[in-house]
């Protein structure tokens, strides 16, 4: 008796919703990036679940590409956070209003 694909999808949905709640209630940019990582992992769980369900390696290829994009996103995101907040006393995305039109 295998675990049905629905169980993996439910876990993926729960993880995605958890990450979305984190993005909504956090104001620290580092915490926002951590929550985004949760959401990306939720996507990967669903992709690899589909790969197993259909016996097709494409899902795992997509998941590996998502991991690469996540690594690139973290590099650029953390670089921006360090460059912007190095000289500020607070770590808060609300502070970034200098580009307000």
């Amino acid at each position: 008796m295998n675990v049905p694909i629905g169980a993996y999808l439910a876990l993926s949905l729960a993880l995605l919703v958890l990450g979305l709640i984190g993005v909504m209630r956090r104001r620290n940019p580092l915490m926002l990036l951590l929550s985004v990582e949760l959401m990306l992992n939720a996507g990967n769980v669903a992709l690899i679940g589909f790969s197993r369900e259909w016996n097709d390696p494409s899902g795992q290829v997509f998941a590996l590409v998502v991991m690469v994009v996540a690594a690139a996103e973290v590099v650029i995101g953390l670089g921006l956070v360090v460059a912007i907040f190095r000289n500020r006393s607070n770590l808060d995305v609300d502070e970034l209003s200098s580009m307000r039109g």
Partner: peptide, 30 residues
């Protein structure tokens, strides 16, 4: 995929997060 998850995510990405958290220190929000 599990091996890459451990090496790239838990290995590289989280270590980068920890470096930046240690660099910026503990600062509050506005």
């Amino acid at each position: 995929a599990a091996a890459i998850q451990v090496i790239v995510y838990a290995g590289a990405i989280v270590v980068m997060f920890l470096f930046v958290i240690a660099y910026l220190g503990d600062r509050g929000v506005l």
